[in-house]
Nucleic acid binder design. Structure first.
Length: 424
RNA sequence: GGAGGGAUGUCUGAGCGGUUGAAAGAGCCGCACUCGAAAUGCGGUAGGCGGGCACAAACUCGCCUCGUGGGUUCGAAUCCCACUCCCUCCGCCA
């Protein structure tokens, strides 16, 4: 959510920014007009309230001196109350409309973000050499099924499309990846591990920006909870409504959770495999910091995510995501894309974003600076990594001619020293 | 599910119709003492919105806010209603 005062001061900047993010510039213009109207009415209503307060004060003063209450004074005050009620009704027309528009307005991109659609994403890093295969590389869903470690058919029977069972070494590999990532971030990168609720209320979903516009992307329970689409939601809202101390910043959290997404609107895309399932595991990094530090924290966050791929020996590239492909709430977004040999392309495995104060305003997360003033924090988060996609990338990049899959060295300790997954 | 208690500022915690936007303590900031620190003493310290000011800061005036929403009243932290959340006990249960 934006600060209405900032929009008032720089309407053109917001209009352009919102349009780059696919929002409506007309909404910004409407907001400015409504804001002007609101302040006019507010001045009137506040003057009336001040008058009423003065007369109530006068009644109180004369009571205190033991004088009897002046009927005329009371009647006048009552009349003021009626006038106030009328002007307040005008406010009640304007304010909900301002609120409605403001809450649905996307964040605006930081200056350094390339404009345009996905094709304008700017590569900033490329790491690792894609392996060369004698025969065409198999897709991970074939490898996994042939090894007996992934089962889509039975998942279809038990749940439906876009689900998977993992079995034996598959289930162990998934668990090993989660442990490996958590250990890396908590021991080497200084994050505090969190195990959050997997169901959240509507306020929390609003705080991070899933609501009001993207409710259909989440699974909702019959009694008003949402299954989290990412740990970002509960972990960012961990400090909602709080005023943190500057001395505590930055706060760095790390959380493994299952994530649930309805994938409404993704019909027909990535219907096979582990890339786009309704349920997947993810290790998420979340930071709370100051506006001075948030962009350097974004760089280190991105490095922390990249280090997972490097430790696992998976070739990847990092792109700055162009304005048209960015999410609703963020101001700058890096995507990490891992190499999938069977598809012969890099595909997203992590998204690292700086939300600046956008989420902090929605969730009301502030801090008291050393100077003593209260300001909104900047929030950041990034996947490090999406576990299901990492699992898939390992199968494809480490596949052997005999159908087995080598285990990346960094992971072997988590699999009791096992260096290969073969048909069992 | 049943019975009861509670929600106040950065935190703990008083207040229970009118100088209470709020006692006290802690924390934090400033100053004094000190070579420095600790300890001690003195002072300051809620948030939001709007006006004035050419922007901003500072300053200043006003409005709103004591879980949320509504009501009673000239006037509500204080009374009434609804809701949310937390705690205790009982029941049930992984």
């Amino acid at each position: 959510m934006h600060d209405l005062k900032e929009i008032r001061q720089q309407p053109e900047r917001f209009r352009r920014g919102v349009e780059k993010k696919g929002g409506s510039g007309a909404d910004v213009e409407r907001l400015v007009a409504l804001d002007t109207r609101r302040r006019e009415v507010l001045i009137r209503v506040e003057a009336l309230r001040a008058e009423r307060n003065r007369s109530s004060e006068a009644i109180a003063a004369s009571r205190r001196q033991g004088q009897s209450v002046d009927e005329a004074m009371q009647a006048a005050a009552r009349g003021l109350g009626e006038q106030i009620r009328q002007v307040e009704a005008e406010l009640a027309e304007v304010e909900p409309e301002i609120d409605r528009i403001l809450r649905a307005l996307p964040n605006i991109p930081n200056d350094d973000v390339p404009e345009g659609d996905e094709s304008q994403n700017r590569e900033v890093r490329r790491w690792g050499e894609p392996a060369v295969f004698d025969e065409p590389a198999k897709p991970h869903w074939e490898i996994g099924v042939e090894l007996g470690i992934v089962d889509f058919e039975r998942a279809g029977k038990v749940s439906g499309p876009r689900f998977a069972f993992l079995r034996a070494d598959g289930a162990r590999l998934e668990r090993a990846l989660i442990d490996f990532m958590l250990d890396l971030h908590t021991r080497k990168h200084g994050y505090t591990e969190i195990w959050p609720p997997l169901l959240v209320n509507a306020d929390s979903a609003f705080g991070t920006g899933q609501l009001p516009k993207f409710g259909q992307d989440m699974f909702q329970t019959t009694d008003g909870y949402y299954l989290i689409p990412t740990a970002e939601v509960p972990v960012t809202n961990l400090h909602s409504g709080e005023i943190l101390s500057a001395a505590d910043l930055p706060l760095r959290y790390c959380a493994y959770t299952p994530c649930f997404r309805s994938e409404a609107g993704a019909a027909g895309r990535d219907t096979r495999g582990l890339i786009r399932n309704h349920q997947f595991n993810k290790v998420e990094l979340v930071k709370f910091t100051t506006e001075e530090d948030s962009y350097s924290e974004l760089e280190s966050l991105r490095r922390d995510a990249e280090s997972v791929l490097e430790a696992l020996g998976l070739p990847y590239r990092t792109v700055v995501v162009a304005t048209g492909e960015m999410t609703f709430s963020n101001a700058r977004q890096y995507d990490l894309e891992v190499w999938f040999p069977a598809q012969n392309m890099y595909r997203e495995i992590s998204s690292c974003s700086n939300f600046e104060a956008f989420q902090a305003r929605r969730a009301n997360i502030r801090y008291r600076s050393e100077a003593g003033d209260v300001r909104h924090v900047h929030t950041l988060n990034g996947s490090a990594l999406a576990v299901g996609r990492t699992f898939a990338a390992i199968l494809e990049n480490y596949q052997q001619r005999d159908g087995s899959v080598m285990v990346p060295k960094a992971l072997r300790a988590y699999l009791g020293g096992q260096d290969r997954i073969a048909r069992g």
